[in-house]
Amino acid sequence: MTDSLTRLLSERDWLLADGATGTTLFNMGLELGEPPELWNTEHPDRIRRLYAGAVDAGSDLFLTNSFGGNASRLRLHKADSRVAELNRAAAELAREVADGSGRKVIVAGSIGPTGEIMSPMGTLTHEAAVAMFHEQAEALKDGGADVLWVETISAAEEFRAAAEAASLVDMPWCGTMSFDTAGRTMMGLTSAQLSSLVEKLPNPPVAYGANCGVGASDLLRTVTGFLASGSERPIIAKGNAGIPRFEAGHIHYNGTPDLMADYACLARDMGVRVIGGCCGTMPEHLRAMREALETRPRGNRPSLEVIAEHLGGFSSVSDGTDDAGPTRERRGRRRG
């Protein structure tokens, strides 16, 4: 049977994903260093409010509060025995909000990196990584997630391990990497290499793409790399809403709702199918993005010059695909 995300993609030209989990929870009082996954059982009403913020703003898809819910990360807080409990709770709360929305909303079970370096560079074996992701995926499935959402990955080996875990639980999945080092991931992968990796997997994702990174303009430049690969698989873009700053005890990003609305329409015009935000993207940004996507006419595929004009200059000369070094240029002025 076709999964619910694939069905929705077949009915729509684009889907609006959610925005920031961490920024929102910090602004609700989460302390620096405190694992947000513990709030799934300690403060469920706050997590419902997190989810509802995205749904009420028009998101068709939102991620569960389980990004750091694997045993490796939870072990740092002596909570590795609670992987199943915390991930199941994250998905159950999400299912409750999605089912109460009155429309079809996809619950995506967030799976972030382990925080460890995989062999041969590090000590984490493929088998151990698969086991950790499998444990988390089973709990998200039990809690009612529609799809697994592997995000902010930087290493090909970890991406493969997460894909294998999705296969073990027989769930559809999506995967995004963070390209934040002169157009590459922290472990050196380019957009072209991710496109190639995705198509070689025995169970490729429903959709793939980029999240987080440096900013919206860099993220859309990464998307051009996916497009150049010729892949016809749906592409995901979840860019940050500008640059962070700390004001009056809260984290704010300088990307305005207007800027994120421009970003969303540029992504749509590039052919991105799942458009959302990452760090700093709040409900007000999502509402502006939804309105713009619904009301602005589709345009031609934007050039890099047009992207920079609307969203600001790129953080590096190269996007990584030309094997150029990480020489950085001064960012252009951001509109807003």
Rank of each mutant, 00 (worst) to 15 (best):
L8Q: 15
L8I: 13
E11Q: 15
R12M: 01
D13Y: 05
W14G: 01
L15I: 11
A17I: 08
A17T: 09
D18I: 09
G19A: 04
T21A: 04
T23D: 02
T24V: 11
T24R: 02
T24Y: 08
F26Q: 08
F26V: 11
N27K: 12
N27Q: 13
L30Y: 12
E31D: 11
L32I: 15
L32Q: 14
G33Q: 08
P35S: 14
L38T: 14
W39K: 09
W39E: 10
N40H: 12
T41E: 13
T41H: 07
E42F: 00
E42T: 14
E42D: 14
R46N: 12
I47D: 01
I47R: 02
R48N: 03
L50I: 13
A52N: 09
A52Q: 12
A54M: 14
A54C: 07
V55I: 15
D56N: 14
D56V: 13
D56I: 11
A57H: 01
G58R: 04
G58K: 07
S59A: 15
L61T: 01
L61N: 02
F62M: 12
L63G: 03
N65C: 12
S66T: 10
F67Y: 07
G68S: 15
N70G: 09
N70D: 12
A71Q: 10
A71R: 11
A71I: 15
A71V: 15
R73M: 10
A79C: 13
A79Q: 13
D80S: 10
S81V: 08
V83W: 11
V83L: 12
L86I: 08
N87Q: 10
R88I: 06
R88P: 00
A89G: 08
A90T: 09
A91R: 05
L93T: 03
E96C: 02
V97K: 01
G100V: 05
G102H: 06
G102Q: 11
G102W: 11
K104L: 14
I106P: 05
V107C: 08
G109L: 07
G109V: 12
S110K: 06
I111S: 01
I111T: 05
I111R: 00
P113A: 12
G115L: 09
E116S: 08
I117C: 01
M118C: 11
M121H: 02
M121A: 12
L124W: 14
L124I: 15
A128T: 12
A129Q: 00
A129N: 00
A131F: 01
M132P: 00
F133D: 04
H134C: 11
Q136R: 10
A137F: 10
A137Y: 08
E138W: 00
A139W: 07
A139P: 07
L140G: 06
K141A: 14
D142S: 13
D142A: 15
